[in-house]
Write a protein that binds this DNA or RNA. Structure first.
Lengths: 127, 127
DNA sequence: GGTGCCGGTTACTTCAACGGAACCGGCTTC
DNA sequence: GAAGCCGGTTCCGTTGAAGTAACCGGCACC
């Protein structure tokens, strides 16, 4: 059994349109996934989203929602009522993100312990 | 068929140990996934990695690899030869990331077109 | 003895995301 | 007429990831 080296990787190993280059596509990496989770069960109002997203400021929430709207993952619907009402909902495309998100969440659930242990071990050993 | 509103989300909707809070776990978001791809087929040397990761600087590559090593996704092996040889390889845990990564890449492949179209449409319409 | 390779390190700068605080118009309620 | 709610905006500061450029020690080669 020969321990063969894998072939060297070419300079164009990643094509210009390679998906791995563009992920994650949705602006704010800190809040986007949480926002999507909050919208999973149906449309939500701006102030309604601020409750579960504890600690988010109006500015950051507005920015995140706008960037997700630009990317076509979220729709903003404004109702001419009083007091004004604005609702945010997932688009069909936004909803398809739930699958890959679940896969990453499962991975984290299974490996977060080992990951934190690895950090402690790294620090304990050589630094 | 009643169009019922979903129940409001509580302030503790995301528990402190919720996986979605901790993803992505691997430091550098720009290069980590590409590095993992490069290591998929076996161990690679530092300078060997710089070829496919076109444009990465030695500093950023070293930082990224170290943070991935801290997280237990990569092992660094130093050989006392001349000229010095250092090899980086995926750990078993690092290898398990390939599944979720594939899911995200598939999503991007399928939706990147729609996403870019949504951006253009957003700009064209209301701004 | 000068040059180059290997695998980095160091110091400095740039940039985008994030956070804090204040403020806004339109409307209602007290 | 004062206060409050809603859905934000504006200005400013902080932080951390990433990029740039220069340099390093040890060894081999010419």
């Amino acid at each position: 059994m020969t321990q063969s080296r894998p072939a060297p990787l070419p300079a164009d190993f990643f094509p210009a349109d390679c998906p791995v280059q563009s992920v994650p596509v949705l602006g704010s990496r800190k809040w986007a996934w949480r926002i999507i989770r909050c919208l999973e069960d149906g449309p939500r109002r701006f102030s309604e989203l601020r409750v579960p997203l504890a600690g988010i400021t109006a500015k950051v929430l507005a920015e995140s929602l706008r960037s997700m709207e630009q990317d076509g993952a979220v729709v903003r619907t404004e109702y001419a009522e009083n007091p004004p009402r604005v609702e945010y909902a997932l688009t069909p495309m936004g909803r398809t993100l739930l699958g890959p998100m679940d896969a990453m969440c499962d991975w984290t659930r299974e490996n977060l312990g080992g990951l934190l242990a690895a950090r402690l071990e790294y620090e304990r050993a050589g630094r």
